[in-house]
Design a protein around this nucleic acid. Structure first.
Lengths: 242, 242
DNA sequence: CGGACTGTTGATTCGAATCAAAACCGGTGG
DNA sequence: CCACCGGTTTTGATTCGAATCAACAGTCCG
């Protein structure tokens, strides 16, 4: 693994973990297969038994489950630097879909190579484990979002979360970020109908709290938005080793 | 660690992981502090920085978040054999509460000891990691439950999940299990009001699908219940190493 | 026996879904 | 260049599931 792919992963892991030079070199020598993926393409499907993990380098992806009666619930959004299906390393069968939102650049790393790395470099294993735990922390907050917040607070909370995560990897600043997501998919994230998503966004725009043109989101009054969403970023565990 | 505590943990981990004799001996020699905890007592609180993990040996516990306006959302239920705060090993600050539902027998294991064990015995590290990944899989299904299912389906899905998990550790059979949970707490699990929980349970009883007297739940028509809940147990990842 | 949860019932309200249709857009091909 | 098309966004009218409000009954326990 060299170039962008290596940088993406090592940057992510060294920010919040204590890796030494050997750890980083071991990561950089992982075998990796680069692949470009079209928008809205199922990368790994529910029921699959993948033999590799997918490192997202460019573009966005999301994980979702579909109920037997065809309703879809998005479980998480994924941004560059993440390995959305890292859990497949220890859970053989996928229990949900991983889908590209936009065109993506990805790197596939064989499970075997990752297992060997984990065995030889406990620091790296701990860092990767930690990433899956942050994942779980985000799921927990997602449960609260869908279960307990009003439609407007739900929307706001999701947008702030995305902003914070994108900001942390340099893909957003000053409250602005690019995310080519439809209102329908936002509805599947928030367990709201498309119609209601539209109305909520209009209310938020009307209140002067944000703007949205196509894929461009601009959070205008972050303080106020955080208040109305009851947002506390602690669950993102972004501070180094905290 | 000896006796019941050791048995609880090693049973759990050996069922679905490949541990050898040395692994098991290493687990059994973990230092552990036994403690009894009263019902409805906060074991680890949001914001805490625990230095040990809590192995649940007897009794039930749950994890929950409270929003700034005082609403509570239960995130998961925990049964004997589980380590509900294992994530604290790598995420220093708790982002939710862990609370006992009933009187519990617990064993506290220092993080230091667990870290050393993970370093020396990669098999054990993988087994523990896997437990946290199953945790996350259950969170994902919980999102779907709260986000996409009707009140009745939600209730049913939760009860079947609990039954399956209890059955797997020998604490339930023939559709029956003991769980001293109030309707109010069930509401906090399902994001429903207490009143509505009551009505849904009456409907299910009325349809002859289950009975509830105090803490005793009896699922009468499991097939039918699974159908109406859209239950697919794959997300519990109970089959050994699958 | 009294008090505090817990469970139950009925009446009413409300947030969001649903249904239906129009307006808007970005592309495609004639 | 314009007509057309599918997907997306927007608007309005109506319905519905669950919340809320308000009592009351049951149960446990000191």
């Amino acid at each position: 693994m060299t170039g962008l792919l290596a940088t993406t992963l090592t940057t992510k892991l060294t920010v919040s973990n204590l890796l030494d030079g050997d750890d980083i070199r071991a990561i950089q020598s992982l075998p990796i297969r680069t692949r470009n993926i079209d928008a809205l393409h199922v990368i790994v499907a529910d029921g699959d038994r993948p033999a590799e993990c997918c490192l997202l380098t460019e573009g966005f992806a999301f994980r979702a489950k579909t109920t037997f009666d065809g309703q879809r619930q998005v479980l998480s959004m994924h941004i560059p630097g993440e390995i959305p299906d890292l859990q497949s390393l220890h859970l053989k069968v996928m229990d949900h879909d991983l889908t590209s939102l936009t065109r993506c650049t990805t790197g596939f790393i064989p499970h075997d190579a990752l297992r060997q790395l984990n065995r030889e470099r406990p620091n790296v294993a701990a860092a990767l484990w930690r990433e899956t735990l942050i994942d779980a922390a985000i799921f927990r907050e997602w449960i609260v979002n869908v279960g307990r917040r009003s439609a407007a607070a739900r929307m706001t909370h999701l947008l702030i979360e995305l902003y914070r995560r994108l900001e942390a990897v340099g893909l957003a600043k000053s409250g602005a970020f690019e995310l080519p997501i439809t209102q329908s998919l936002l509805g599947d994230c928030l367990a709201l109908s498309t119609v209601h998503v539209n109305r909520v966004l209009q209310d938020l725009r009307g209140a002067g709290l944000l703007t949205v043109n196509r894929a461009n989101f601009q959070l205008l009054q972050q303080e106020k938005l955080e208040d109305m969403a009851g947002f506390d970023g602690a669950y993102l565990h972004q501070a180094p080793s905290i």
